[in-house]
Simulated assay, not measured.
Amino acid sequence: MSGTAIPSSAQETLPEGAIPAATLVIMRPAPDSGPDEILMVKRSTNMAFAAGAVVFPGGRVDPDDYVVAQQQAPDVDPADGAARVAALRETLEETGLAVGWPALGERDLDDVRRALLSGTLLSDILAARGDRIALDSFVPFARWCPNFKEARTFDTRFYAVAAPPHSHELTVEAAEHSHIFWASASRTLAMADAGEVSVIFPTRRNLERLAHAPDFDRFSAHSCQFPVELVTPWIEERDGRSFLCIPDHLGYPVTSEPFDRVRRG
């Protein structure tokens, strides 16, 4: 991580005290012609946030991500561009999948991943290789900032992308994750309902949304119909019971859940 400060223009868009982050929903056709499969990772049980939960790849936006965004996509909003870079970088670090990086072949992928994990800046790697990254291949569809007092507050931008072709086995970065798998949104929800995996509130709501547009093309078209607005869930009392709620105009088929059933972080 660079010591470079986050640009003030990007800081102004952040909710107070929130950590900027990004996550990537990577979709590929299922072998049985069913709904697209989505790449999921299970967080290690020793993590401070969402320990043991199944999530989409992603993580914090680093200062160097703003540098890369300015170099590679200077016309994009700085916070949006940096989040796209973070989604690309974190996915490569966490899973070994190079998304949005067409010039990075499988022969060089392991070396680049090791360099990133050892602290080499992505901007330096791109400059040395002379590569361009395809940030415009990421489809923005959500931005969440749950403010749960018992968990860290992240301002997370969500993007969807079609999985690139690859023949190598994907592996998790063991310091943060314990397992990696492909499954449709509906299958992951069924696993959660059966107690086989754990999902936090934002992941569940987004899986439900993905299940209603079950391939990348249809989900991209669906996403374009709704604005990307900051989602900060709130609690409502209904008939003596507390519900955690989100807005009903952003494309989510389920917009509330009993608070006592919610996993928040």
Rank of each mutant, 00 (worst) to 15 (best):
K42L: 06
R205V: 14
A128G: 15
G240I: 07
A174K: 11
G240F: 09
A185C: 04
E208R: 06
S44T: 08
A5H: 12
C145Y: 01
R264K: 15
P164I: 08
V161S: 07
S186F: 04
R28L: 06
D77Q: 01
P227V: 01
R60K: 15
E12F: 12
P227G: 00
P233E: 09
G96C: 05
E176K: 13
D155N: 13
I125D: 08
R113A: 03
S184L: 07
L135M: 12
F226N: 01
I235G: 02
A53K: 09
L250D: 05
V161C: 14
P165T: 11
H212F: 09
G240L: 08
T255L: 06
L230F: 05
M47T: 06
P7A: 02
T95A: 02
A10W: 00
F216W: 02
A53S: 13
E94P: 03
D64T: 03
E208T: 01
A134N: 11
Y159H: 11
P31N: 03
T171A: 13
E37F: 03
A87T: 12
H212Q: 15
I180L: 15
I125L: 15
W234Q: 10
R218A: 12
A50V: 13
I235L: 10
P29R: 12
A127Q: 14
E150F: 08
E176W: 10
R205Q: 14
F181Q: 14
P35L: 04
T255K: 06
L109S: 08
L210C: 11
D136Q: 13
P140Y: 04
P78S: 02
A87D: 05
F201T: 05
P15W: 07
E106R: 09
I26F: 00
L116N: 04
I125F: 11
N46L: 10
S220H: 06
T91G: 06
D65T: 00
H212S: 14
D248V: 04
E229M: 06
Q11S: 10
F138C: 10
A53P: 05
R263V: 13
S178N: 07
V112I: 11
V61D: 01
W144N: 04
L122I: 03
A211E: 04
R209D: 08
R60F: 11
G105C: 08
S137A: 15
S167L: 13
F219N: 00
F219K: 00
L122C: 09
V25T: 08
R28P: 00
P15A: 04
T232K: 05
L92R: 07
